[in-house]
Amino acid sequence: MAALLEAEGLTAGYGQTAVLHGLDFAVEERGVTALLGANGAGKTTTLRAVCGMIRTGGAVRLAGERIDGRATEEIARRGVAHVPDGRGTFMELTVEENMRLGAYTRPNRAEVDADFERVFGYFPRLRQRFRQQAGTLSGGEQQMLAISRALLLRPRLLLLDEPSFGLAPLVVQEIFAIMRRIREEQGVGILLVEQNASLALDFADQAYLLETGRIVVSGPAADIRRDESVRRSYLGY
């Protein structure tokens, strides 16, 4: 059976500048794949390339079907939810409206309402903030809201861009703990971009290490975690 997501020779860039120089990677069904690397290695760009936010070359397949070259909204409609860099909160709208937008593509109101409850199960704090303007939430709460918005799409594949960014360590712990639950209960595949390599390697099955737009190391997350030399030279911990 084909992987949930497969990228083959994926290239992308901004304007004249090429950022990705032909990446091959995969996310298994219900699997977690981590993309690691320093600032500017091309991690965020990879996520943007997968969901068509920038012009790309090469092939991207979702469950065997080509999605490269399609519009972002069409890729989202095929079940790819992206928690973008900066969280993408609709600041002017309420928490409720943000969540409703997450479920925008789903016609069945009853199912969506049930999912609201499920999401509140993960993030009870959002229930308290339900009617509040999203711009007034704390960073951690906005991250929770962003993940909720993505989950409400009922995605097959979840793209997470630095969920730990700018958050207090305790909040990060909380969010990763919940993501473990989500992974077990929701049956989604996850492509995770993270600067905090130790956290990401604990969470992921597969990992790819990016450097200036190329994959330099790849393999099972556990192996990479054990590999002293990779850790020293690339991950710095």
Binding site: T17, A18, H21, E211, T212, R214, V216
Partner: peptide, 9 residues
């Protein structure tokens, strides 16, 4: 590292 060689001129 081989990567540096191919940084666009």
């Amino acid at each position: 590292m081989s990567a540096t060689e191919e940084v666009p001129a």
